[in-house]
Design a protein around this nucleic acid. Sequence first.
DNA 1: TCATTGACATACGCCACGTATGTAAGTGGC
DNA 2: GCCACTTACATACGTGGCGTATGTCAATGA
Lengths: 203, 203
Amino acid sequence: MKAAHKPRSEMIAETRAKLIAAGRRAFATTGYANASMDDFTAEAGLTRGALYHHFGDKKGLFEAVLAQIDQEMCVRLNEISARAKTRWQGFLDENIAYIEMALEPEIQRIVLRDGPAVLGDPAQWPNANACISAITANLVALKAEGLVRDIDAEAMARLISGASLYAAQWIANSEDPDATSIKAVKAFRALMEGLLVAGRPAN
Amino acid sequence: MKAAHKPRSEMIAETRAKLIAAGRRAFATTGYANASMDDFTAEAGLTRGALYHHFGDKKGLFEAVLAQIDQEMCVRLNEISARAKTRWQGFLDENIAYIEMALEPEIQRIVLRDGPAVLGDPAQWPNANACISAITANLVALKAEGLVRDIDAEAMARLISGASLYAAQWIANSEDPDATSIKAVKAFRALMEGLLVAGRPAN
DNA sequence: TCATTGACATACGCCACGTATGTAAGTGGC
DNA sequence: GCCACTTACATACGTGGCGTATGTCAATGA
């Protein structure tokens, strides 16, 4: 008896998942440009034929990989902000978590380095906007509560996420990431406290 | 009579300059990955042979192009901060100028998009550090004057330049760059004012 | 059961990079 | 002023990677 045949749709999903996983590993380790489609599809027990069938081209697979990572990031961020006691704390936690995620080599390479070069400005990616939107929504709520000053929320959200990402890059490439991380987070908190309405205690 | 022979060293400098200029144009318009060395060297009246001789490889030429652009940016920034009446104003002007420079397509593409993918983290580039250093030095001085709060200057400089860059990306890709630019600069000013010692007027 | 669809593999051509080699012009010693 | 030598390039070649066109076989549905 041959191995039980799963329904076709399952086989397809499995193939897609294998390709995405293989591509993800290759992109993360050798980078987009140096990742050979022949190599990493073979690693997944397939050929480029499968890749072109499902994703159109190399860039298409990269988009799928990025979408997967983005999704994971968003889930993690939402969990963190949901756990916080106050909205302000959730806001801080979420952003600091963002910084810390950006320390992971896979995210560094795929999302922060190759992503923009291959797919263009991250702000245009469907999900990056989702993350920005979350920060924006938080700021709007915080403004409504009278906690933060009256500033255009989206603009500020962009500035904040930029600062976070850059902080992450700095940390990841520093000689002593732990020490740098402490300094960065501290500076980030200070920057955020500047947003509070004067005299209002940060809680 | 043949064309007057310039000394060899001049010819070499000229060749290098021509290659850098041609590469710069190609990288800016089609991007690093899509720029064909055969094409743009021919455009400069040369071949890949010259390129390999002077720059080692494609990446080597890219580094040279980036160094040239970086240099130009630094000169412009220094001029701007030098023109300001107060140190705080110079600090603001310089950063806002940074945002505005990041709107230029050439800088977007070469410095902000392809640069990190080809050469790695910008914070490690020799010159990016020079720009960061300038911001850091400004912050140190502002702290000494008692104008801004006591925050690790380098960390804050990193956060600020990250915010600037991201703001620029946002502006460049928005539907109405002018309107977005106004919002971004306003938010940036607000973010910076949060750094001031409480009660201190920004001048 | 048979026609059809679709998921993949195979085969091919092209382009681009890098290297090895060639050549001609410039440079320094005598 | 000639000659050995260096050096700034051009030319020629091999290789590898991408994309496309084509083939094949299994799964589905009437």
